[in-house]
Each structure stands twice: as C-alpha cells, then as structure tokens.
Design a protein around this nucleic acid. Structure first.
Lengths: 197, 197
DNA sequence: TCCGAATCTAGAACGTGTTTCAATCATACG
DNA sequence: CGTATGATTGAAACACGTTCTAGATTCGGA
C-alpha cells in the first residue's frame, strides 16, 4: 500500500502531525473558527509557526484535514451498527438526527469545521472528496437498510447528493447564527420527505 | 413609506453609497473576493476608509448588500416576462439556466458574492433575507407559470427552499474551483427532476 | 448668518494569516 | 565518526480587515 499522508515520515513527524491536529480540534472546540489561530495552534502543538505551515499550507487545509479525521471516526462507528427504522425515510432521518445531535453538542467545533469546509478552494479538493465519500457512504447505507446485497441505484446516489446539499445549507445557516439548531432537523425532514416518497 | 437604507440621508450620502457599491462590483468583477479590498474600494469610491466603514460595517456586509442590489435588478427584469415552458420542471429549469448562464459570464463577480453570502453571519440576516425572498419569488413564479391567481402551496415553498439549497451548494463547488460550470446545471437538473414529479 | 453636532478625511495602529530567513538540530550516508 | 542534506526553530516582516484619532468640512436649526 502506498504511504498516505497520515503514515509518511518519521515517528517524530507523525507525532508532530498528530499534536497539530489535536491542538486544532481543541482550539476549535473551545472557541470556534476564530479561536483556531495559527500561532496558538503552533504553540499548543509545541512546534514553530514555520513548521505548522510546512505540514499544512493554510488554516483551511488544517481545519478540513481535521474534519476528515473526525468524519473518519464517525463513519467507522456508524459502520458497526444496523440503522434502525422500517423505511428509507426513517433510517435516513435517524442517521441525520444522530449526526445533527452530535454536532449540536459541540457547536464551536462544528462552526469551525463547517466554515472551513465552505471556504475551501480547489487546492483542498482531495480532503473535501474524502468527507463527501464518507457522508455518501453513511446515507446510502441508511437508505438500503439491512439489505447488504442491494447496490445503490443511480437514483439513490442522486438523492443522497441532494440531501447532502440541503444538509450543508442548513448547517451553514445554523453555524452562522441565522437559524436555530432545530431548523436543521426540520429542513432535513422536509427534504427527505420530498425526496424519498 | 418608511425611508429605507437606500433612500436615507442627503443626496451626497446617497451618491457616496452608490459609488461605494459600484466600486465594489467593479473590483469584484475584475478580481473576485480577494480583489475587493477595503482600501481599494474606498479609493475607487473616493471616500475615506473610515467613511466606508461608517456605511458598511464589514466587507461581508458590503458584498452581501451589493449582491442584494444585483438580485433586485435580476428579479425586476424576470418579473416582466412570462417564463417559457409547459411544465413546472421546464419553467424552473429555464429560470435556473438563464441565471446560471449569467453568473458564468462573470465568474469573478459570482465568486466574490457567493463567498460573502456563505460567510455571512447573523448580523447580515436582513440582507440575506432580501436575497432569499427574491430567489423564492423567481422560483415560485416559475413553478406556477402563467396562472397568476394560483397561490404557492406549502409544498411549493418547501420545494423551492430545497432547490435553493442545492443551488447554493452547486455554486459553492463551482466558485471554489472544485467542480465545472456545467456541473451546476447538471446538479440542478437532477434535483428539480427529483422534486417536481 | 452663525453655531453646534454630525460627518468626512488622512493616516496611524492593531490583529491575524502568511512568508521569509538565518541559525540550529536531526538524520542518513560515506 | 564526520559531513551534507533536509527539517525545525525563533523571530521579523508583510498584507489586509478593522479600529481609532485628530483635525477639517458639511449640514440643519436658531
């Protein structure tokens, strides 16, 4: 297997990388996007500012990479369980509900990661793609339910993409303080009802 | 009628405000979000930096207000015409197609305004709301077609909101360079097909 | 017309993302 | 070992959004 970014370099380098991402999450969790200041991340991770920039070329790269790591964790956990619910609608809403509840418990972290995701440009396309794949995997798994053998249809994929778009918009409204947390769930419910009928 | 922000103040003040927004659009059109630098806007509009900040408390307010003015213009024009197409699907796609084509002709401007819209927080809620209403008006008008008497149903409104969310996500992908211009149209077509059936 | 208040101007200054650079340190290779 | 190569450090410097200040200008009301 080709060495990925996570496993490349010496032990000391992998350690530095981990410390940087840990510091990023901790700062984001405590104070949101604005609290993730590059000097503070470098200090908390015990690296020099220049080193931080050698590992992550911008604040956006840093945060989107951290988002990928969190998503990785969430998706791994979700993969181990059967999604409850008798219909695709129920199952999709369950996944979205669980995820949204988790995000609401760490609003500052969610704000930081979502803002970074929204601001990311083409140079972050790879990390963005990772996140998109994980979300797609979770949602198609929910649509198909326990029928492991069923391949997601093109229609399933299209629906999942639209749901993802609505979810991002709803999150955007929430993290920017324009809507309430409950509105996220409402939006998703309406969209899922329109799409899965 | 209550004096709105656009009509308040002396002639000189209305002139200053117009010059500022004109300079904003011009800079955005030529170089996108990054080119809209507050010092440059102030210079091009022949006002002092402090004055610019007296009129618009942040770069985001400035750009979202400019977006509102552009949307106002587009919606006024669209109001004067009958949307061609025999079905809601065709008519909605026509409106989205025309709008998307227009945006693609000014990619830098679109990038600047879309990024500002995405980044706007609660303090810009009023300006955001204006934009949302105009988009909703255009789309419900397209769904209902020539039947002026028909009131948009709750379902219509819900569909329009979902379409707006998908549109924003698609635009986001495009202005950040992660997807091609044609992908915007494709996304919209898929979403509209799923929603208007 | 004159005065006080509001507005405008020019410019300095500050915070944070980003870049740069010389000096030091770590590592691999002869 | 010794050395070359690259990584890391510490610190300065730059860019741009934003804030602040002191003086000039404009405006509305007595």
């Amino acid at each position: 297997m080709a060495t990925t970014t996570e496993t490349a370099g010496s032990n000391a380098q992998r350690e530095r990388r981990r410390r940087i991402l840990d510091a990023t999450i901790e700062l984001a969790d405590s104070g949101g996007f604005d609290a993730v200041q590059m000097r503070a991340v470098a200090d908390n991770a015990d690296v020099a500012l220049g080193t931080l920039y050698r590992y992550f070329p911008s604040k956006i790269h840093l945060l989107v990479t951290a988002l990928g790591r969190e998503f990785e964790r969430a998706e791994a956990q979700s993969r181990t369980r059967v999604v409850p619910g008798d219909t695709p609608h129920e199952r999709v809403m369950h996944v979205l509900g669980v995820t949204t509840t988790a995000l609401q418990k760490q609003p500052q972290l969610t704000e930081a990661l979502t803002r970074a995701f929204m601001f990311a440009d083409a140079s972050v396309a790879d990390e963005i793609h990772v996140v998109g794949m994980k979300l797609t995997a979770m949602l198609t798994h929910a649509i198909d339910g326990t029928d492991e053998s069923r391949e997601p249809t093109d229609e399933d994929m299209a629906i999942v993409r639209v749901i993802g778009d609505v979810w991002l918009s709803a999150l955007m409204g929430w993290v920017t303080g324009r809507t309430q947390a409950a509105d996220v769930t409402t939006s998703m419910d309406v969209a899922v009802r329109l799409l899965l009928r």
